[in-house]
Simulated scan of single mutants.
Amino acid sequence: MLIAHRIALAPNNAQATYLARAAGTARFAYNWALAEWKRQYETWKADTSHPRPSQHSLRRQLNAIKREQFPWMLEVTKNAPQMAIIQLGQAFQNFFAGRARYPRFRKKGVHDRFTLTNDQFSLDGSRIRIPNLGWVRMRETLRFAGKIMSATVSRVADRWFVSIAVDSPDSSHLPKAENQGAVGVDLGVSTLATLSTGEKVTGPKAHTALLHRLRRLSRSLSRKQKGSANRRKAKARLAKLHARIAAMRSDALHQLTTDLTRRFHTIGIEDLNVSGMLGNRRLARSIADMSFFEFRRQLDYKAAMRGGQVVVADRFFASSKTCSACGHKLDELALSIRQWSCPACGTTHDRDVNAATNLKFMAVSPTVSACGEKALAAVARRR
């Protein structure tokens, strides 16, 4: 099982300069190969006697000309340009397979990264040795055991990180779930997650909390003259704030998903149409601030590591409109209604807790995949 461990680096000024130069070399090689790929592909379409472009041919072509045309590439590790072209080849494979869109050019300050193969770097405790640079301090040691496959050095705002991929023989390096039973999780905007146990987890709403400062720094950047030192400083301040917002959101999601997968073996969640929800201009910012997709991604892999399972309800599963006590389903339930009483049995429900309870019933039902909502009514009647 491939596991990646992302560790912050602590380079000095000279080392940070080298890392920036290596990332720039990788970005240049990627963009050069993409432009050359387009040119060669158009030539091949016009006359099939010409060779069709591939990452292997582009790597050989770059190696043949870089000493004369791009001698500055020799100042950094050879992996920087070569792995960038290999990644371009993988991007085209995903595009032709329909898994991704057409590759686009990388931008400075956005795609600052380069990759090393496992034979080009070594680890010693909390240090990593990078070719042509030497040892660079890491903020922590590698937590995973197994065969080291690669390392990707990247920059986020003014900080450098290394993501080390490890092929671990043990797919479950975390303790097994405590198995406190099943739980349903209802995601929302005002409250990030409501559990069927009645617990409510309020998200940090980092973007909303720092929106005033974000707007102020954005205005400051827009007023600076392009190419000036003040614009570069303003851009760096804005990038640091965006990185802080992302870190606050990621930290909250990691704490929540770790707690859920540690306590419960079976977790029921909804299959939310996030792209459709973002079409609501009144709620789009709040929905994006909660990061529902990232929550589900973390939940999936952490549950698998602990031997648990995540059961996803059908997108049209009426978790909010169905009474968790008797199974009666309402025809309509406005989003503004946070509490409602069942007309069949008279039970008063908190909208979110009721939805989470229904998701729990769905997760433990053996016939949910075949019967959908019918299974919910059957489970409710047995109660």
Score class of each variant (00 low, 15 high):
Thr117Arg: 14
Ala91Cys: 12
Phe92Thr: 06
Ala145Asn: 13
Arg282Gln: 12
Asp124Gly: 00
Ala378Arg: 09
His173Phe: 13
Leu58Gln: 15
Ser286Met: 08
Met277Lys: 10
Arg244Val: 02
Gln309Lys: 09
Ser196Glu: 10
Asp167Ala: 14
Met305Phe: 02
Gly24His: 04
Ala100Glu: 11
Leu221Glu: 07
Ala313Arg: 06
Leu34Val: 10
Ala288His: 12
Tyr41Met: 05
Ala209Trp: 10
His265Phe: 01
Tyr41Trp: 12
Ala206Ile: 04
Ala10Leu: 09
Lys176Ala: 15
Gly276Lys: 06
Glu42Thr: 10
Arg139Ser: 12
Cys323Ala: 10
Arg263Gln: 14
Ser275His: 10
Gly276Thr: 10
His50Pro: 01
Thr191Ser: 14
Val310Trp: 07
Arg137Met: 00
Cys345Leu: 11
Gln15Pro: 04
Lys200Thr: 15
Val311Leu: 03
Leu211Tyr: 09
Trp44Arg: 03
Asp158Tyr: 03
Arg223Ser: 09
Trp135Met: 04
Thr208Gly: 09
Arg101Cys: 11
Ala243Tyr: 10
Ser168Tyr: 01
Ser365Lys: 01
Asn273Lys: 14
His207Glu: 11
Ser341Ile: 11
Cys345Val: 07
Ile267Cys: 04
Cys342Pro: 09
Arg282Tyr: 10
His173Ala: 08
Trp37Lys: 05
Val153Trp: 00
Arg262Ser: 13
Ser369Cys: 01
Ser228Thr: 08
Arg231Asn: 03
Leu133Trp: 00
Gln298Phe: 11
Ala165Gln: 12
Arg338Ile: 08
Gly146Tyr: 02
Phe161Ala: 09
Met290Gln: 15
Asp259Cys: 05
Arg381Gly: 07
Phe95Thr: 05
Thr261Phe: 03
Thr194Pro: 12
Val183Ile: 12
Glu199Thr: 11
Leu330Ile: 06
Phe264Thr: 07
Cys371Met: 06
Val364Tyr: 00
Arg99Gly: 01
Thr322Phe: 07
Val364Met: 03
Glu373Arg: 11
Arg382Thr: 08
Phe121Gly: 04
Leu253Arg: 12
Pro169Asp: 03
Val364Ser: 01
His254Leu: 10
Arg21Asp: 11
Leu123Cys: 00
Asn358Asp: 05
Thr367Val: 02
Lys45Arg: 06
Leu9Lys: 02
Ser218Asn: 04
Gln87Arg: 15
Ile148Ser: 05
Ser172Lys: 11
Phe292Met: 14
Val312Tyr: 01
Arg213Ala: 04
His207Leu: 15
Ser168Lys: 01
Gly327Lys: 06
Ala234Tyr: 02
Glu332His: 12
Arg21Leu: 11
Trp135Gln: 01
Leu335Ser: 11
